[in-house]
C-alpha cells in the first residue's frame, strides 16, 4: 500500500485532541500530581512518592467503605435488573397505555439528584412522611422506623430510594429490547407450542442480552459512584454506616482537607471502577460469543 504524501488531515484531529486534553487528561494529571506530594500551602509542596497510596491502601475506613459499596452495588443490581425485566414484560404492547407507561416511568429520571434525596427525607420521616408513618402504623417493626437513628433502616431507605430512582431506566431499556424482537419469533414459538416460560428463556432473554449488558454496566457504574442522593438523605450516617466510597472521598478532601491522600484515593477509586466495568463487559461479551456456537 502506498503511503500518503499529504498528512495535513492530521490537523483535523487537533480540536478533538485539545478538548479531550482539557476535559480529561489535564484534570487527571492534576490529581496524579497531588497524589504524590504533601501540600502545606500555596507553593509549599514536598514530594512523598507512593506514601499516600500506601497509607490509603491500608486505611481501614477505606476498606469498610469499599465493602459497603460492593454490598450496595450488588444488591442494587440483584433487585433492579429482575424488577426492570418484569416491568418491561408487564407493560402493554400497543394502544394508549404505552405512552402513559413511558411517561410515568420517565418521571423519576428527570428529577435532579439532590431533589431525590430531599423527596425521600420527607417521604420517610417518621412524623410527617407517608412511608415512615405508614410503616410505623402497621406495628410490624420492633422499634420506630427512623433512618437517622438505625443503620438497618438507613440502608433500607437508601436502597428503596435507589431502586425507586433507577429501576425505570432498566425497565425502559428492557422494553426497547423486547419491542425490537420480530413478531416471527413469537409465531414460530406458538406453532411449536412453546410455553410462556420457554418463550421467555429461549427468545426474549437471549434477545435482550444487548440492552441488559448496557443496563448492568450503567447501573453498576452509577451505583458505585453514587453521591448526591445519599449525601442529601443520610449524609453517610448514622455513624459511618452509609458512608460509601464517594462520600468518604469528599469528607477526606473537603472537610479534613487531606488533599494528597484524597487524590491517591481518587486514583484507586478510578482504577477499581475501570477494572470492574472492563470485567463485566468482557464477561457479557464472551457469554454472547459462547451462545452463537
Amino acid at each position: 500500500m502506498e503511503k500518503w504524501q499529504n498528512n495535513k488531515a492530521w490537523f483535523l484531529v487537533l480540536p478533538a485532541f485539545v478538548i479531550v486534553a482539557f476535559s480529561a487528561f489535564i484534570p487527571l494529571m492534576t490529581v496524579v500530581n497531588y497524589s504524590i506530594q504533601d501540600i502545606f500551602g500555596p507553593g509549599e509542596a514536598i514530594y512523598v512518592g507512593t506514601e499516600w497510596f500506601e497509607e490509603m491502601l491500608s486505611n481501614y475506613r477505606l476498606h469498610d467503605a469499599l465493602w459497603r459499596q460492593f454490598l450496595f452495588s450488588g444488591l442494587v443490581l440483584l433487585i433492579e435488573i429482575p424488577l426492570g425485566i418484569l416491568i418491561a414484560l408487564a407493560m402493554p404492547k400497543r394502544g394508549w397505555g404505552v405512552s402513559a407507561c413511558l411517561v410515568i416511568l420517565a418521571m423519576p429520571l428527570v428529577i435532579p439528584w439532590n431533589v431525590i434525596g430531599t423527596i425521600w427525607i420527607i417521604f420517610t420521616r417518621p412524623d410527617i412522611g407517608l412511608f415512615g408513618v405508614g410503616i410505623n402504623s402497621l406495628n410490624i417493626l420492633s422499634d420506630t422506623f427512623d433512618h437517622t437513628a438505625r443503620p438497618l433502616y438507613a440502608w433500607i431507605t437508601v436502597l428503596v430510594m435507589e431502586v425507586w430512582h433507577w429501576t425505570p431506566l432498566v425497565a425502559l431499556l428492557c422494553y426497547a429490547g423486547l419491542r425490537a424482537i420480530p413478531e416471527a419469533y413469537y409465531q414460530a414459538a406458538r406453532i411449536d407450542g412453546a410455553s410462556s416460560w420457554a418463550t421467555f428463556f429461549y427468545i426474549q432473554l437471549p434477545k435482550m442480552r444487548g440492552v441488559l449488558t448496557i443496563a448492568v454496566l450503567l447501573r453498576w457504574m452509577d451505583s458505585f459512584l453514587i453521591y448526591s442522593e445519599i449525601f442529601t438523605l443520610t449524609g453517610g450516617g448514622p455513624g459511618n454506616t452509609t458512608t460509601f466510597l464517594s462520600i468518604y472521598l469528599v469528607k477526606l478532601a473537603t472537610m479534613q482537607f487531606d488533599l494528597g491522600p484524597a487524590a491517591a484515593f481518587s486514583l484507586i477509586f478510578f482504577v477499581i471502577v475501570l477494572f470492574f466495568s472492563f470485567l463485566f463487559y468482557q464477561a457479557l461479551l464472551n457469554g454472547e460469543k459462547g451462545e452463537k456456537i
Binding site: 416491568i87 407507561c101 410515568i104 423519576p108 430531599t118 420527607i122 417521604f123 412522611g129 425507586w164 425505570p168
Partner: peptide
C-alpha cells in the same frame, strides 16, 4: 401497584 410506588413520593412532595 408499581406505578403507585413511583408516583407516591412525588405526590407527597
Amino acid at each position: 401497584i408499581y406505578f403507585g410506588f413511583l408516583i407516591l413520593p412525588i405526590y407527597w412532595m
